[in-house]
């Protein structure tokens, strides 16, 4: 993959982030009321307000205010949370890792099961498995996450208490944070029991968050595989005497991946939205829940920070999807 392509994409990323920063900056100016008052909350002392006003340059023109704002976020200063008094950056950092752990687990479940189901459905088209899994997928895409999460909690944590219903790990089992991903940290600390406990905590929210993308992946994989299986090069692979598993996994699936990756990329917004809901239902201490709590508490500095981080995340994931696409399809490599 040519470096120039990556650097061009990184430059685009930068432009997008600048745009988002402008929007976030304007957000606070659009809301009626004094931005300093909004940021510090209604119980702020007058001298604090005065200090923040000069700090934000509120008496100066918008461009200069924006410059000040940009400088501070580049320094990593996202302001202070009204609710906790802690720097927003620190609060976001911890929660971001919780969200990443949950999303990675969900993506893993969704892609693995979705692709397996899609491939089997395509290879055994019109079989009982095909009809069954596509029916489930249809239910899956139209499932309200909120309802699904509550049902799972009711069934597997309350009625038959097999799994924990909230949090990332049981009290007292926490391992020292190295990566911020609890499952990994407990492994690093060599505490297998704690790792198992963390995995059990992860299971319900990850399955909830995985449902919709899993259903999407299964459907796209199936239709994409059906198309690819009719291609001439699949016939060529068979004509070479290759076994059916090699034909399907190496020659067909590799090509069928491309639309799956695209559709996943297009549905990222859906995933992030799902993360917000899932974290709220399962009291998962991640960014999604944090942004909801911040909105409720009118914690504008925190909300601003979250929006910025979400934008960075979306842009980064989009970049990864595009690079993945280029890696998967040599025909794009030359044009890129």
């Amino acid at each position: 993959m040519p470096l120039s392509y990556i650097s061009r994409r990184l430059f685009h990323l930068l432009l997008i982030l600048l745009g988002v920063s402008v929007l976030v900056f304007l957000m606070l100016r659009m809301i009626p009321g004094d931005p300093a008052q909004l940021l510090l909350g209604e119980y702020a002392r007058p001298e604090e307000l005065a200090r923040l006003r000069t700090q934000l340059g509120l008496d100066r023109s918008y461009p200069i205010q924006y410059g000040i704002y940009l400088q501070s976020i580049l320094r990593g200063d996202f302001g202070t949370s009204v609710r906790t008094g802690a720097p927003v950056v620190d609060e976001i950092g911890v929660r971001l890792l919780a969200t990443i752990e949950l999303s990675l687990a969900a993506m893993f479940i969704a892609t693995l099961l979705g692709i397996v189901a899609g491939v089997i459905s395509a290879v055994k088209q019109y079989s009982v498995f095909d009809y069954g899994s596509m029916f489930l997928a249809l239910i899956g895409v139209s499932m309200p996450i909120f309802w699904l999460g509550l049902m799972l909690i009711y069934l597997l944590a309350v009625k038959f208490p097999i799994l924990p219903m909230m949090g990332r790990i049981s009290m007292g089992l926490e391992a020292p944070a190295v990566t911020g991903l609890v499952v990994v940290d407990t492994l690093i600390a060599g505490q297998l029991g704690a790792c198992g406990d963390a995995l059990r905590h992860l299971l319900l929210p990850a399955c909830t968050l995985a449902t919709i993308p899993m259903a999407i992946v299964a459907r796209i994989t199936r239709s994409s595989m059906l198309e690819v299986l009719n291609q001439d090069y699949v016939r060529t692979a068979r004509a070479k005497g290759l076994g059916e598993a090699v034909v399907i996994l190496r020659h067909a699936l590799r090509n069928a991946f491309l639309p799956v990756v695209t559709v996943l990329g297009l549905n990222l917004g859906l995933l992030l939205g799902g993360a917000v809901l899932t974290e709220t239902i399962f009291s998962w201490p991640g960014l999604g829940r944090y942004v909801v709590d911040s909105l409720m508490g009118r914690d504008y500095a925190a909300v601003q920070g979250c929006i910025l981080i979400f934008a960075v995340l979306m842009a980064l994931i989009n970049l990864i999807v595009d690079l993945l696409y280029v890696l998967l399809d040599p025909r794009i490599r030359v044009h890129a």
Binding site: Q231, D232, Y233, R235, T236, A237, R238, A239, K240, G241, L242, G243, H251, R254, N255, L328, D329, P330, R331
Partner: peptide, 22 residues
């Protein structure tokens, strides 16, 4: 499968699509 590509092989009408693009 032991015969295909080994004792009897086959080429097709559509060279543009008969090779795997990836």
């Amino acid at each position: 499968r032991r015969i295909r590509g080994n004792e009897i092989s086959m080429i097709f009408q559509e060279p543009m699509t008969s090779l795997n693009p990836v």
